[in-house]
Amino acid sequence: MSEFKHLKTVPLATISRIQRPQVNVPVTVSSPATAVLTDFSLQQPLVLEHTTTIDEAEALMKKTHVRLKLVVDARDAFKGVVSLADLLSVKVMQAVKRTGVERSELTVESVMTKKDAMLAVDIASLKAAKIGDLLLTMQSFGDQHVLVVDGVDGSIRGLVSASDIARRLNIPVTINERANSLAQIYQAVRQA
């Protein structure tokens, strides 16, 4: 520990102000969709190795308050995604029956959504879109999350979650009810 040192501390008795961002731009459904992107070029993605047991994955997700993780193999290659809902669903019992493996030995690979069964949005499309466009797309997927890819370099660029959109808009966002038009999404947003 000799390489570290104690930092100088100051008393808080005279401090009363909390700093805030200089520009507080409110986010609406008409704001750029990139405002709700978790960009992996700026923030580490949350990943699980495909051999992680479902019990370990569930505990990690609950502890970190994350509902979806990317699944990678031992070489860090993207294989799919696993959600907390997957880990708590009938998929687990189906995997037990299909594999003959005890539940405690099941891995996320046995219940994840494989990449070949998924759709994503390209970053170029996202940059030209509004949050309302993104919500409509997520509604058509019927998913709480959508992956964003960089088609130029063939990588997963980021992730958008309905819960992040709800936090930024400061309203509830319901994805499982499929809306047929942007007008229906706007109506749902106004009613919230």
Rank of each mutant, 00 (worst) to 15 (best):
H6N: 15
K8N: 10
P11Q: 15
P11T: 15
A13R: 09
S16Y: 04
Q19G: 15
R20T: 08
P21L: 00
P21K: 01
V23K: 00
V23Y: 02
P26T: 02
P26G: 03
T28M: 01
S30G: 05
S31F: 01
P32W: 00
A33K: 01
T34Q: 02
F40P: 02
S41Q: 12
Q43H: 07
V47M: 03
V47A: 11
E49Y: 00
H50Q: 12
T51P: 04
T51A: 02
T51E: 06
T53G: 01
T53W: 03
T53M: 08
I54V: 11
D55C: 12
A57Q: 02
E58Y: 13
L60I: 15
K62A: 11
K62I: 13
K63E: 13
K63T: 14
T64G: 01
T64A: 10
H65L: 11
H65Q: 12
V66T: 08
R67F: 15
L68G: 01
D73C: 12
R75H: 05
A77P: 09
K79P: 00
K79L: 13
K79R: 11
K79M: 11
G80M: 08
V81P: 05
V82I: 08
L84R: 10
A85W: 13
A85T: 10
A85L: 11
D86S: 09
D86C: 04
V90S: 03
Q94C: 06
A95Y: 00
T99R: 04
T99C: 03
E102M: 07
E102H: 07
R103F: 11
S104T: 04
E105K: 08
E105T: 02
L106Q: 09
T107P: 03
V108G: 10
E109A: 14
V111A: 03
V111G: 03
M112E: 08
M118C: 08
M118Y: 04
L119R: 07
A120K: 07
L126T: 03
K130Q: 09
I131W: 02
G132Q: 10
L134Q: 09
L135H: 02
L136K: 11
L136A: 10
T137C: 13
T137G: 15
M138G: 04
Q139C: 14
Q139T: 15
S140Q: 15
S140N: 12
F141N: 01
G142A: 06
G142Q: 06
H145S: 06
H145A: 05
V146K: 02
V146I: 14
L147A: 07
V148R: 00
V148M: 01
V148N: 00
V148A: 02
D153H: 13
D153S: 06
G154K: 14
I156K: 06
R157C: 04
G158D: 07
L159S: 07
V160H: 05
A162M: 10
A162T: 06
A162H: 05
A162G: 14
S163N: 10
S163W: 02
D164N: 08
I165P: 01
I165K: 02
I165A: 03
R167D: 04
R167E: 04
R168S: 14
N170R: 09
N170L: 01
I171Y: 07
I171T: 10
I171D: 06
P172T: 12
V173E: 01
I175H: 05
N176T: 08
E177D: 08
R178M: 04
A179H: 14
N180L: 10
S181Q: 03
Q184R: 12
Q184T: 12
Y186M: 03
Y186F: 06
Q187A: 11
V189I: 12
Q191F: 06
A192R: 09
